[in-house]
Amino acid sequence: MDVKTEIRNYLYSERFKNEFAKLGDDDSLLERGIIDSVKMLDLIGFLEQKFNVTVDDDDLYPENFDSLNAITAYVGQRIK
């Protein structure tokens, strides 16, 4: 499975899914209320574990986490 699909599956997992009907790849997760601070911790934990990356605190900007595409791009950079 590619990175994007993994992240998409995660966002559609039970913990998140009733928050949205259908999520566009560029839809803002913050604006739609899909990510609050508790879920953000969950998301970081998932990314670190799944892709064996470290989410640096210098990277904690909305630009990196606000949509499926943004997260995918961010993880892509960290894996390299």
Binding site: L30, S37, M40, L41, D57, L60, P62
Partner: peptide
Amino acid sequence: NNTFMMLNT
């Protein structure tokens, strides 16, 4: 600031 988890903000 409604995005506390974005600590840099």
